[in-house]
């Protein structure tokens, strides 16, 4: 099939993370392809945040490998790269959207500067150009041009989250990690953000790894789903198949426990 010609963007094998005697996660295996959105679901303590932190190279795994298709280099083991190379990767080819925008934004510099800063970190120096790109991206995430010079601290939670997304996407990353990006937002704001994320992902052909405990979010955003419990992946597959025809007792429990309005 014509699919076989496409190289994976990320390849994870036998990934394991221990905190001393305490299991973080283990036995994680998957391949992520360009344009794919992978959802990781599970309850608190299931190991999903540990996994996300390992995948995004913020934490070194105890065993196993994570390989990423670095531009012009091909698949490279993340932890065989130097610290400096990893940092460049994180700033250019990756994005990370935190649940709390305060962790991903500088609250005391303007929204425009928050977005522009990322470009400057990559070496951009032309002020007018940086300003223009910031404006374009803030417009894409539906921030009114009149608010560009305001501080994010004066924004609503939903707006802050959109600024954080713009800050991440301005460098045109190929892979974006998201940790509960819609958590803590009002449902109406959540819907708007989901719609925005969905169209950005489609238009830009982004790959995304998104951690959430909200199954409805995964149905709308994720192509594939990984269900975690007690540090292990207990089920994975096509999102609608896992949600409509869950095989594992725990997934069945999760799916049947969702309240339907």
């Amino acid at each position: 099939m014509s699919l076989s010609a496409i190289q994976p963007l990320m390849q994870v094998e036998a990934l394991e993370k221990w905190y001393g005697q305490q299991l973080g996660c283990r036995n994680v295996n998957f391949e992520l392809y360009p344009g794919e959105v992978l959802g990781i679901v599970g309850e608190s303590g299931s190991g999903k945040s540990t996994l996300l932190n390992c995948l995004s190279a913020q934490m070194e795994p105890s065993a196993g490998s994570i390989r990423f298709d670095v531009r012009e280099q091909g698949l490279r083991d993340l932890f065989s790269l130097s610290e400096a190379q990893r940092r460049v990767l994180m700033r250019s080819e990756w994005g990370f959207v935190h649940q709390n925008p305060r962790n991903g934004l500088r609250m005391r510099v303007s929204a425009g500067a928050n977005v522009g800063e990322r470009l400057m970190g990559l070496g951009a120096r032309n002020y007018a150009d940086i300003r223009q790109q910031s404006l374009t991206w803030l417009e894409k995430v539906e921030i009114d041009a009149a608010r560009v010079d305001d501080l994010p601290i004066h924004f609503s939670g939903g707006m802050q989250q959109r600024v954080q997304i713009a800050r991440n996407l301005v460098s045109q990353p190929r892979l974006v990690f998201m940790d509960e990006p819609t958590g803590g937002l009002d449902v109406s704001v959540q819907a708007r953000l989901l719609d925005l994320l969905r169209s950005l992902v489609t238009d830009l052909g982004l790959s995304v790894i998104i951690v959430t405990h909200d199954l409805a979010v995964t149905r709308l955003l994720a192509h594939r789903l990984m269900v975690m419990r007690g540090g292990e992946v207990i089920e994975q597959g096509l999102t609608d198949q896992v949600l409509d025809d869950p095989q594992h007792p725990y997934t069945q429990l999760l799916v049947s426990s969702v309240l339907q309005p």
Binding site: M1, L3, R224, G237, L238
Partner: peptide, 15 residues
């Protein structure tokens, strides 16, 4: 080309 949906990967099904 034939695809057996009983064995296909999520990617193949999406395709």
């Amino acid at each position: 080309e034939w695809l057996d949906l009983a064995k296909a990967s999520p990617r193949e099904i999406l395709y």
